[in-house]
Design a protein around this nucleic acid. Structure first.
Lengths: 209, 209
DNA sequence: ACTTGTGAAACGTTTCACAGCG
DNA sequence: CGCTGTGAAACGTTTCACAAGT
């Protein structure tokens, strides 16, 4: 599937959630314009994205919400459920565990890891916490391909290396460090400090008219 | 200052943190190439960004780290400290409180808000938790211009409206809803589900060569 | 008349490539 | 030389605008 750029994939995720919400409201069809309005995207952009995944609507009814959701799932998700690991069971890590538990059928956080012996062995939101040394065994056993890194900056590179060595190919990193990985691994950096500073900056721009 | 696009501001934030780290390591000068390598950015991009803030280096020594940090602060920060509010003291909200406490001189989280009466009145990481009804008074009193929204999706729009009415011009939103605000307010949407799905998708792309 | 699907234009961002300089 | 600063080229992304369908 061509044209699946990072930006397109990001929007597809939003479209799918919107579709799920619309289905819950018993809405069966939407126009590109409605999707755009709901998500702050232009209608033309929405239609381009549909083109990318080869999904078509009808000029009279718009897009079938149910079929749209399926088409996005087809384009984005693995055929089977993908295991996700979490490393770092601090406040941020627990936010993930509580938010994603039972919510996402295809990407459940199935294993947690922490260096604190107090946390190892505990079960938090139905997710067992393992020791760092167990990374290779657990990643292998559960077939984990993606890891959420929510540890302090100084440990982020080391834990990432351990997961990559164990076969993980996707890293969602919240630590304020640029992770160095081989080109065969995808890393998404989510830098909370940066987002706060950015918001503060543009907030001030808005103040001055 | 022209050319301060969202992308440039994002990178400036990273440059500044790098500069602070370098200073801690007693490094006094850096070349654009070094900055680029450390952050996964091209050297040309780094130099362009310096141009935007009117900061210049020397062809022989590179950029003075101390002056760079100051130049970025000059370009990005408010002259005085900017108050930041947090609404929603769940796991994610607490992650912010613990991470930012004492770490950032210009953007401290100075007030928290939560609907849960159990939390109201408590002090978490040196930050007092207020009731939702106190938003106008506290925002006014502390001169808050920026809010971090970390409440469930169904309450995000209502609390945002309350903060905007109280004079806030910047919103950092973690709730999985597109917030509707007037054009005089800046909103940054950080969608954790989207980031996880995106990481999962590209992780799979990497697997298949 | 309203949509969708889409080639082409517009726009934004990054990278190239090189003059100028210590 | 190897660097910075920068105009110009390249690239990526979004938006326009309209044919075609209903």
């Amino acid at each position: 599937m061509n044209g699946m750029t990072e930006r397109t994939v990001e929007r597809l995720s939003l479209y799918r959630r919107l579709a799920a919400n619309l289905l819950a409201d018993k809405v069966s069809h939407v126009f590109s314009h409605d999707i755009g309005r709901a998500l702050g995207i232009t209608a033309a952009q929405v239609r381009r994205d549909m083109m990318v995944i080869g999904f078509t609507g009808s000029p009279t009814r718009g897009y079938d919400v149910e079929l749209l959701k399926e088409a996005i799932t087809q384009a984005m998700d693995a055929p089977a459920a993908q295991g996700v690991a979490l490393v770092g069971v601090g406040n941020l890590g627990r936010a993930f565990l509580s938010y994603f538990t039972g919510r996402h059928p295809k990407m459940a956080v199935t294993a947690a890891f922490d260096a604190d012996p107090e946390k190892v062995g505990r079960v938090i939101n139905g997710c067992r916490c393992h020791a760092i040394s167990e990374i290779p065994a657990v990643v292998e056993e559960l077939g984990i391909r993606t890891v959420i890194v929510a540890v302090p900056a100084e440990h982020a590179q080391a834990v990432t290396d351990a997961f990559v060595a164990a076969g993980v190919t996707g890293v969602l990193n919240f630590a304020p460090v640029r992770l160095r990985v081989s080109p065969s691994v995808f890393v998404e950096h989510v830098d909370l400090t940066m987002f706060l500073e950015k918001t503060g900056f543009f907030a001030r721009q808005k103040e001055n008219r």
